[in-house]
Design a protein around this nucleic acid. Structure first.
Lengths: 349, 349
DNA sequence: AGGGGCTATACAATCGATTGCAGAGGAAAT
DNA sequence: ATTTCCTCTGCAATCGATTGTATAGCCCCT
């Protein structure tokens, strides 16, 4: 009862049990080489392996083959309500292929992210999912390139030819603007995401294009980029906009957390949502349907994003194929935080 | 520019660069054996390693030493708002010790959990954090025992002598009951968690003890265990209680998600919270302060839980010490979903 | 009957780091 | 001056699975 030999069984023991050489056992257990072994022998080996509960040692296999059946993921916050479901879906898809997900959380520090890439590379990960990448000259991405690691970006794009799975950031933000315009809004301000992030840039572009398409002006100072995707940062940016934008009737935010911060700013300014001002978010995080008022936002397909990213990465790993960028459509979820502008504001523009 | 030899540096190359034998290089780079090497030689080796950007190959190291610097975690849902912050904190603490966290998500399937344990064991994890364990004869726990894997339970207790880090489930639920009693409630029902889970059982016990301590009766049928920690399950259980418990003025729920379901049930029954009925939760998930009305709940120290679990596990791994169970205090967070009972209901009991 | 061709298996090298053991060299002690 | 001891370094085995190569049969054909 002290330490009852918890040493696990290895290939040699299986081979002995089946009365063959380890190399034969190896071939019998590997579907790609099984045809090299006589059928009855293969069966005997497999049976012996099953009886003994054999599992190939991952370290030895990894050392010999160079592949680890591990995939690394870099995320800015495991508990982030946007990335958590993406990770969950990716992990499930990878697991079905025998891969496990090694999650590293460097926060918002790009240097730390590059350091984690080195660590993951030393662990011989077969590929990497990157959700931390910023738009220009990201050190983590460079570290992957340097080592020739298959890489897929998730919910972030990295520019020139980097495979990625993203939602239609521009189109999603345009949906929000069109919705507000449809309700009669003309004076709309934008709480933007951090500029170095693709979501920040693209959603801002989506805002600008949709406003232009609706024939609406964006006065200078009506776009304010938050310094990070956080509630406090959203409040700060929204507070700025509320004082700076006379007659503003709607805030289109680049992200749900920013929208929550905008709620705070509006409440502190004594504005009711949506009676005095409308607010929209982006991402449709869990539970934003429960807040008061329920948040009108853009739904992005988190699960699908994770699944597709895993699929693309596995393709790249197995076939070495150069994966392209996949843009998934997002949709408007209309709830209680958006409504018609206050009386008399409709015809202002 | 095709494939510029992304093969990484190994120990032999470092040794050559420093003009020593690989074994000497190994000793020079390992702090535990460095004293066996002459100081100037050790320095030369370290410098060479730094210059070449050497990282020991994890697979080879793991194969030789039997340790992988990997820790597995089994959680029922990566995106679960309770476990995600626990995982994040644990990952950070482990990372500081050179360990990485390998997350496996078997959902609620105990057989699948045991299968994942086998897979993680084959990957030679140094230890396991278990957040999926049910109270009696859990297969995953048995699988760990069988292999002699160091194990710490998180937010779950497993009975007899299994190391665990949990919050004070009984005490937390008692806080909620005392709060309600203090407001004047006498007729309180309990929406319980799943019975096979320690949180389900202990919080129910906490409810019963606190009611007894307050001199209050629990009529038969005033406790209803939900089949899972979910909003729909909470609504089902709460609906049952609302029809079954005449004059009930408060629902003490075992979990925030159940409380959200209770909100749904109350709304469908035309009851206003907290004017007609009070509702309390447990866990203080992110964003429950934003719903309407903001949820009164019990705050459990997620981050600390993850951190302490990691610490205990590392102790067990390094020193082989038998870790005990750590019970962390939780606190009441009073918000808008609890208030005095409707007029005339105070003196009913 | 003997050789060519083929199949199925065994042998042995290999991946990269760690570690028990042996031995070289120098210092200290008698 | 020789022995003893100690410090440092090199040698080689090892962890467990995979895979290139060699060989033992066997069948078939002429």
């Amino acid at each position: 009862m002290t330490t009852p030999i918890p040493r696990s069984i290895n290939l040699r023991q299986v081979a002995e049990e089946a009365g063959v050489h380890p190399s034969t056992a190896s071939r019998a257990l590997n579907s790609a080489t099984r045809h090299l072994v006589a059928a009855p022998v293969a069966e005997r080996v497999q049976e012996a392996a099953a009886r003994l509960g054999y599992r190939p040692d991952a370290a030895a296999m990894s050392l010999r083959t160079g592949r680890s059946r591990l995939v690394g993921a870099l995320v800015p916050g495991i508990a982030n309500p946007v990335f958590a479901p993406i990770l969950a879906a990716a992990a499930a898809a990878l697991s079905a292929d025998g891969h496990a997900l090694l999650v590293a959380d460097p926060g918002d520090d790009p240097e730390r992210a590059a350091e984690f890439v080195a660590e993951l590379a030393a662990r011989r990960v077969d590929g990497l999912l990157l959700a931390t990448v910023s738009l220009r000259d990201d050190p983590a991405l460079a570290a992957c390139r340097l080592r020739g690691l298959p890489t897929v970006l998730v919910n972030r794009s990295g520019g020139e030819g980097v495979p990625a799975v993203v939602s239609d950031d521009r189109g999603g933000m345009a949906l929000a603007v069109e919705h507000l315009v449809g309700l009669g809004h003309r004076r709309i301000a934008h709480v933007g995401g951090p500029a170095p992030l693709s979501t920040g840039l693209l959603r801002r572009e989506g805002f600008e294009r949709a406003m232009a398409a609706a024939g609406l002006d964006i006065p200078p100072g009506w776009v304010e980029a938050a310094t990070a995707y956080g509630r406090a940062e959203g409040e700060a940016a929204a507070t700025l906009l509320l004082t700076r934008c006379p007659g503003v009737t709607a805030l289109a935010c680049a992200n749900d957390l920013l929208a929550l911060g905008a709620y705070d700013a509006c409440h502190r300014a004594g504005l009711r949502i949506p009676a005095d001002i409308s607010v929209t978010g982006h991402n449709d995080m869990p539970m934003v349907d429960l807040i008061e008022p329920p948040l009108t936002t853009i739904r992005i397909p988190h699960e699908r994003m994770g699944r597709e990213a895993a699929r693309l990465l596995l393709e790249r790993i197995h076939q070495g194929a150069e994966a392209g960028t996949l843009v998934l459509a997002s949709g408007l979820v209309q709830r209680g935080s958006s409504g018609p502008p206050p009386d008399g504001m409709t015809a202002t523009a």
